[in-house]
Write a protein that binds this DNA or RNA. Structure first.
Lengths: 302, 302
DNA sequence: TTTAATGATAAGATTTTGCTTATCATTAAT
DNA sequence: ATTAATGATAAGCAAAATCTTATCATTAAA
């Protein structure tokens, strides 16, 4: 099939269906010679006659039937694709790949869920990974959008804050500082902190914060999740600094308490992030808008 | 998908596969801008970006993946069709619709069978009908080739003889004339004949023959098949005129005998027939050639 | 910082495509 | 025998498609 064109197939389809060159010409708003020429060219590419004329009537040859079958299949493929693409444009369908940094695990699912409720036919994939891996995924364009607390500097990145992310100091309710108010920052130097691993956003923010205030902390154990930190703090192994958003349950059940330290909470934000050249799909764009407009009030209702 | 072209899909496929405009350009022996332009046009028809560029690498968008899926399907359709058509051209595959007049039933199957043995993948359909129906089918282009003893005059017909079709007078072996030699034609006037129905080729040929020799026959019963005539003749109800080719079994088993009448056998032929405008497929042409070249020696071996 | 590679964009030349009008040949119907 | 309809063919024209060269911007690597 060296040089078949869609035009040829379209004209051919009309002729094969009507079994008349003239009728097909009318249907396509063409003159009859135009139709004859298209068919002739198609027959030339195919290398076999597609019609035969017996008296005044025309019939499809076997080869013609084969081409007809084929052209109908192709038309179907195209219209299927057109439908799918149309839905993609219109938000009715799409895939959404989100990666979030571990800590976001405490609120991201809620956001995704309510977004999905509004948009049927959106297939969703959420990956919860640590900051390091997320940076890697970002570099390799493995997701549509990322959610993180500390956007990287180097890469060409677009990062927009959409939710407050206060970091607070936690302690077991039995801790001596639990009852105090306006604890001076320097007081913390006497305590041991259980911290996240190097490279973690929370760890970085925390270190920078204390360094800015001229403090050096004694860090005890390193944990790879906030959950682990909370458990260790509960067990009395030291204090911790975590995002406020991760504490809902523990505060309610009074397993942990937030210390009233001066200059705290550390004011940070959650960012929705993607690389600069990224072509956001309709769905991705919609989700981003959703985060920017509605996340705050969903997570921290008035 | 208003105006997608095969060219666009072809170029797109190469880019999507290589994930590089420049590589695709090399593969297609084009310059890189040519590729960029084709893609741009395709994206315009589709209405969505198909690629995204993140740094130096390009990736398919979701829409791009959909178009890729579609373009591969289309390519597959085309190559399937190309394969089938190629086989049609090369005789490796094809359909063959043959209609034969009732009498040919005695030898046509044998010919078709041996033709099919040589050509695997040829689908065959044989219709055995009376002359009247066959003429109708011919007018409506319902078959590729027909086999008959008396091609019609009116229609634009191409008819070529490929096999001798001698008509002989048959009688039961017990008939008084069975033992005689060189029976004068006029002697037959005293006999009763069992004949085929009006419109039958054999009947026409027979009537014309006797008319030419100035004889009028007394016709008895009319039968619609040669088989019925043979049965009736065996039963002693009269003489018959049939094609020699139908008699193999009856002669061998001595149920019937051929009378040695002057001027007999009536010399006729079997014709392979199709309408003038007919586009013979490769298979049909091959079968026609086969009949013209080999039928005689297959049916009447030396 | 420089260099090499990648893709986008613009301008322009050329080829191809697709169409129309005019005319002819064949066929079926009147 | 005429007539009406169908498709084929030829000539000519306008639009488009396609490609190339030249140049630029961006990015990653040396």
């Amino acid at each position: 099939m060296l040089h078949v064109t869609f035009r040829q197939l379209k004209v051919f389809e009309a002729v094969a269906r009507q079994l008349s060159f003239s009728r097909a010409a009318e249907e396509l708003h063409l003159t009859q010679p135009a139709v004859s020429m298209q068919i002739k060219q198609l027959e030339e590419s195919v290398g076999l006659p597609l019609f035969e004329q017996i008296g005044k009537k025309i019939f499809l040859t076997d080869a013609g039937n084969e081409v007809y079958r084929c052209s109908r299949n192709i038309a179907e493929q195209l219209s299927d694709a057109e439908a799918v693409l149309g839905e993609m444009k219109g938000l009715k369908r799409g895939k959404l790949n989100i990666s979030v940094v571990s800590t976001a695990n405490y609120f991201a699912p809620q956001l995704l869920a309510s977004f999905c409720q509004r948009h049927e036919n959106v297939t969703l994939s959420l990956k919860v990974v640590n900051r390091e891996i997320l940076l890697n995924q970002l570099a390799n364009n493995e997701m549509d959008l990322a959610v993180m607390g500390l956007p990287p500097e180097g890469l060409d990145i677009i990062a927009e804050p959409f939710l407050a992310n206060p970091l607070v100091v936690i302690a077991p309710p039995s801790h001596p500082l639990a009852a105090e108010r306006s604890i001076p920052l320097t007081r913390l130097a006497q305590e041991t902190f259980i911290v996240r691993e190097q490279g973690s956003g929370t760890r970085s923010a925390m270190e920078r914060f204390f360094a800015q205030h001229g403090l050096t902390l004694s860090t005890g154990m390193e944990m790879s999740t906030d959950e682990a930190i909370k458990q260790a703090v509960q067990a009395g192994m030291g204090l911790g600094v975590v995002s406020m958003l991760t504490l809902t349950l523990e505060l309610e059940t009074r397993r942990l308490t937030v210390l009233d330290v001066e200059s705290f909470p550390i004011r940070r934000n959650w960012f929705v992030v993607h690389r600069k050249g990224k072509r956001l799909s309709a769905v991705a764009q919609a989700f981003k808008d959703f985060l920017l407009k509605e996340a705050e009030q969903m997570i921290v209702p008035d």
